[in-house]
Write a protein that binds this DNA or RNA. Sequence first.
DNA 1: TTGTAGGCGTTATCAA
DNA 2: TTGATAACGCCTACAA
Lengths: 349, 349
Amino acid sequence: MTKSGTNLKKLSQHLGLSQTTVSRALNGFPEVNEKTRERVRMAARELNYQPNPSAASLATGKARQIGHVIPLSDHTMINPHFSDFIAGAGEAYARLGYDMLLRVVAQRDEHEVYRDFANRRRVDAVVVHGPLRGDGRIDLLQQLELPFLVHGRDGRDEASYSWLDVDNAGSFRDATTFLIERGHHDIALVNGLETMNFAHQRMQGYRAALQEGNIDPRRDLLHSADMVEPYGYHATHELLGLSKPPSAIIYSSILVAMGGARALSEIGCKIGSDIAVIIYDDALSFLASAGEETSPNAPFFTSMRSSIRDAGRRAAEMLIKSIDHGSADHVHELWEPEFVLGASTGDAP
Amino acid sequence: MTKSGTNLKKLSQHLGLSQTTVSRALNGFPEVNEKTRERVRMAARELNYQPNPSAASLATGKARQIGHVIPLSDHTMINPHFSDFIAGAGEAYARLGYDMLLRVVAQRDEHEVYRDFANRRRVDAVVVHGPLRGDGRIDLLQQLELPFLVHGRDGRDEASYSWLDVDNAGSFRDATTFLIERGHHDIALVNGLETMNFAHQRMQGYRAALQEGNIDPRRDLLHSADMVEPYGYHATHELLGLSKPPSAIIYSSILVAMGGARALSEIGCKIGSDIAVIIYDDALSFLASAGEETSPNAPFFTSMRSSIRDAGRRAAEMLIKSIDHGSADHVHELWEPEFVLGASTGDAP
DNA sequence: TTGTAGGCGTTATCAA
DNA sequence: TTGATAACGCCTACAA
């Protein structure tokens, strides 16, 4: 069966040592004679020995794999935000000797996948994407005692699990306040799906700023849907068609903003002069912060920016660290997006 | 160690049968008494028994995992094209009982990863993404005897490995010819990186059409780079700044075209009337063929369209089928993109 | 500092 | 039709 692969047995025979010693030498056990260890290392390199992960996993109970589940409701999560996160996380995994296991399933089967993961011990932990407000996956994973980290939060007891999130409420509040202070009154929010907690947080931040500015929120200035390009296009057309259109729009994603820009250019409405725009920018790598280079001085879009790829990298690190240390403590990180002043909110003061 | 998981031993004891029989019953061996099999199945469901993949893999030599390597040169492959492919493939894997293993590494380490895969038998096969012209990964995989399927081709002996590709040359030739027949003479191609074979194929198709139309190719109408949005923007600005600007532009990706559209709208150049545009459309799900719904009758962009997500799904199926059947034959599929007439090439005749 | 022996949970071979 | 028994390749008490 073993075609050409060197295994522990062969290697130890080649060295005239026991498998135990060889294993210990390679795994950095302190009791091994340094001379022996060096000899073993040389031979291992020479014979190109790599431990078989299935055997190791069977023996240790550790899979050295982290699971990511992509729920396939419609086209929802297969979006660039997700892929950038994955890229960052994957980078960290590779560095730390872990593999990423991806499972794409219908949304209603996601719980079953976690059960399967826990049951078969195929992964040591999972990353939960796109938490809803009060997300059943979190309860399930706790019950299954499968370690996990959430990218985002679910709005409930946040001390009871590990997460990495950005300050959605704070940044949207600040952005809204920024617009109010510049004299805007009718400010639209083209938001993500509000069943997702991040979108809810953003809406809350927006609302809080309006309240502080003594502005009554207008229901017709609030849109909520999956953050795809066409949504931005349609929502913007609707907004501009109102009898009292907004003078400023906040877009929850650059993707949505691109659809918005398409609509605005059709109408002949110029961003920055005719209308103010602020976007939330995940710093998606394939867009390279599109518009960044429009003007040599300032970026095109005024934005709240936080790299989702960095988030993926950091999330992976946090998770691995906690499972490697076997600590049951939960870890949390709240990132503050950077506020970037661009041309889309008019000339700088 | 085993927390709550039911294993073969427990299950067989519970049933008063040997592990052998239980294993055989569950794995569909024909010699098992149907009554016994049914009894075993019931008990397995009841006790929630799932075979441990590490143990199974160790015993069979099959990992039931397919490897995908994402090279991290710059930001290259972490693009939406890739993630859509992954989504399709992942769907097929889940359906067929396989898992997807993702490894994100620096480009120069990609070969090493394949060696590692082969050596440790962590995956049963791999999918090769974004083949270059004459791609060393293919030689390596053949040498390692690790089964693989290429999404695309590398321009060499295409019978020697399995692949799934779209007819890049043919569709770009047709698109170019279409423009020539409508009276266009100065046709620009904003292409992908031509070290990638798909981009080379596209350029060849474009050249062939020009030649057939007795048009001398102009070097200044040809751009080649990573298919990100800002590239489309810059390339378009350059094209429009030429002393003899093109009357038509072909964009190699909708992402690039979005950058192009941004530039054109800045200049005040109207797509469809001032300039003709054709795009290659991978039917990226999060864009939902942006512009599709601009006009109720026709889509906005005239395009060559082929779903990259479908390609991922099909590629996975082809690969799994070939490794499950243990056949050493190579499989190939060449897809013809659909030509979709939209508004961006002017009014329909 | 090194070695022996047993176990991890399956599958597969050979008998019965 | 079913059952012992031996791999698969590694790790890890326990012993020396």
